[in-house]
């Protein structure tokens, strides 16, 4: 389970307010699309959710627990660029998460252990459709394939929350549509809570079960930096069938979600 609650969060850089009065309560398993004009703090909130930065006021809680102060495997991430390691092949990129967990000293597995780990991630590589490109380096892949790789890489550690910063911003419309199907399927299979920053409002409504719109509501013409952006619209998309499922699960007693939370790996 991963219910995300944000209580009166502010983010300021010096005297510039970026985010103000952010309050959210997102049920576990929800797919949140964050939309709004550039410079309205969508990415900043994502960075805060990732613990890349600390809020100046207020805090973020997951299932009632304060967020760890640094990035952890419980929150996976897919960036728009620099998504995969250029010096590793596709399968080495994907298996990396397992190697970090199993080889504390060097972060690298050899021999039988390596083969076993590669076997374990094979279905993730297949699931994102990269089975033909297993031994290629990221530079040899198209933009869409690189993003698939990044998603597969992020899923290996089975994060409870997946954060995506304009993951499909650089892709052509056809590839984008394919990626939407892929992400929707993986999100349902893994039962993750997803936060996705996007400039494409249609993409946001298509994929998500909740749309969060960011904008500045207060303006001071003499001091444009004095007020920050906030969430102007918090819209659950109740007509989506997935949303009813999510709410049902959220209300079910704790023991009954076990099977559902197992996800892709089993």
């Amino acid at each position: 389970m991963s219910r995300v609650s944000i209580d009166n969060l502010w983010m300021e850089y010096g005297d510039q307010v970026v985010l103000e009065r952010i309050c959210l309560d997102i049920p576990s398993g929800e797919f949140c699309a964050m939309v709004g004009p550039s410079g309205c703090g969508k990415t900043t909130l994502l960075r805060l959710l990732l613990s890349m930065e600390q809020p100046t006021r207020g805090g973020i809680r997951i299932d009632g627990q304060p967020l760890a102060a640094e990035p952890r495997p419980d929150r996976g991430v897919v960036f728009q660029r620099y998504s995969a390691y250029p010096h590793l092949t596709v399968q080495e990129n994907v298996v990396l998460g397992l190697e970090f967990a199993r080889a504390p000293l060097l972060g690298k597995l050899w021999g039988a252990k390596k083969r076993q780990a590669l076997d374990e991630v094979r279905h993730v590589i297949d699931a994102v459709g990269l089975d033909q490109a297993r031994d290629k380096y990221p530079a040899e892949l198209s933009g869409g394939m690189q993003q698939r790789l990044s998603i597969a890489q992020a899923l290996v550690r089975k994060p409870r929350i997946l954060l995506m910063d304009e993951p499909f911003g650089a892709l052509d419309p056809g590839t984008k549509a394919q990626m939407h199907d892929l992400v929707r399927a993986l999100w349902r299979a893994e039962r993750m809570t997803v936060f996705m920053v996007t400039h494409d409002i249609k993409e946001g409504f298509d994929l998500s079960t909740r749309v969060l719109a960011f904008d500045k509501v207060r303006h001071d013409p003499d001091a444009p930096q004095a007020y920050g952006a906030t969430i102007t619209l918090n819209l659950p998309l109740d007509d989506k069938p997935e949303r009813a499922e999510i709410l049902n699960q959220a209300q079910a007693p704790p023991g009954s979600e076990r099977g559902a939370a197992e996800g892709l790996g089993h």
Binding site: G97, F100, P104, Q153, R157
Partner: peptide
Amino acid sequence: IKAQTLGAGTWQI
């Protein structure tokens, strides 16, 4: 950051 979300420590990074 991605390495940290994959569970890497400083030495592994």
